[in-house]
Nucleic acid binder design. Structure first.
Length: 285
DNA sequence: ATTAATGTTCAGAA
DNA sequence: TTTCTGAACATTAA
């Protein structure tokens, strides 16, 4: 479930320890389960990455990017249960990939960066700048949810007739929002999840813009959401705490914390759980 | 002991 | 063209 706030938290945790360090060895872990989906192959990755300096760590939508001095870049996509960890993996059986990093100063111990993934749906790519543009350029990925301007919302949402909840999950339309934050954003914006995207009024688009920024920025402050299954952790294997601030997600049958009158409903949209307050988020509003 | 549910992305179907 | 469905996967709860 790492979405934008969780991936941003990973990147911020990694950055001070990883930027400016040299990769001694990048290699696939011997894993109890199936090996991680990587490309190019292990040998090509080693040839291109070993000895390289990591110049920058950044986030691209829900992906972690490790930029190398050669201008190649690792692109890690955690999908459901992937974690980028500097220490203390929950277990060793689900470790999928390791970057062994050079000692910084003499005092520091050698450091490993790990990709740990319980379900194993995550992927890792090593891209040249040209490959990166093709794989993750504007044709594949819309503007980052935090970078969306009001004009971006006004211009992009009318492009589809799907329910707004479904549109928010379309990474080509707007990148970074996942199932959990889509419900939270729509609740704060007081928009019904089934409202057709192309029928949103100006006032609703303004509220959607503001709610997106508020929810995602607040969630980043709380270091993301760690759900009941405990999958998501930051770079040091610590919990996030935004789950305590969720107003609708996984709160079915509870009173709405905003209006106190409605009861949170759970429905299924695009095969995903969707939570909303029928009083705050009226269909016709 | 099965089965359903979990959520991201993509391939392929409608 | 646009939208929808199912599969990939491990684990837990029912």
């Amino acid at each position: 479930m790492p979405e934008l706030p969780e991936v941003e938290t990973m990147v911020r945790g990694l950055r001070p320890h990883v930027e400016g360090r040299r990769i001694v060895k990048a290699s696939r872990c011997r894993c109890s389960y199936r090996p991680i989906d990587i490309s190019p192959g292990v040998r090509a990755i080693g040839r291109r990455a070993n000895g390289q300096l990591i110049t920058r760590v950044r986030r691209l939508a829900k992906r972690v990017i490790l930029e190398l001095e050669s201008d190649d870049a690792f692109v890690i996509e955690p999908r459901m249960t992937g974690l980028m960890l500097l220490s203390d993996p929950p277990d060793r059986g689900h470790l999928r990939f390791e970057w062994r990093l050079e000692k910084g100063t003499t005092k520091e111990t050698p450091l490993s960066l790990w990709f740990w993934d319980r379900r194993g749906l995550g992927t890792l790519r090593l891209y040249s700048p040209e490959e990166m543009l093709i794989a993750l350029g504007p044709a594949r990925l819309g503007p980052d949810a935090l970078a969306m301007t009001l004009d971006d919302w006004r211009e992009r949402l009318p492009r589809t007739q799907r329910a707004i909840k479904v549109a928010l999950l379309d990474q080509k339309l707007v990148a970074g929002i996942g199932n959990l934050y889509a419900s939270e954003i729509l609740h704060l914006a007081r928009i019904h999840p089934e409202h057709p995207s192309h029928h949103l009024k100006a006032s609703q688009l303004r509220r959607l813009h503001n709610a997106t920024l508020t929810v995602l920025e607040t969630a980043i402050c709380y270091e993301g959401s760690t759900l009941a299954d405990g999958t998501y952790r930051n770079a040091l294997n610590q919990n996030g705490s935004y789950q305590n601030e969720h107003r609708v997600y996984a709160h079915a049958d509870e009173p709405c914390p905003t209006c106190g009158k409605g009861t949170i409903q759970r429905t299924v949209l695009a095969q995903r759980s969707t939570f909303f307050c029928p009083k705050c988020q009226r269909r016709d509003a």
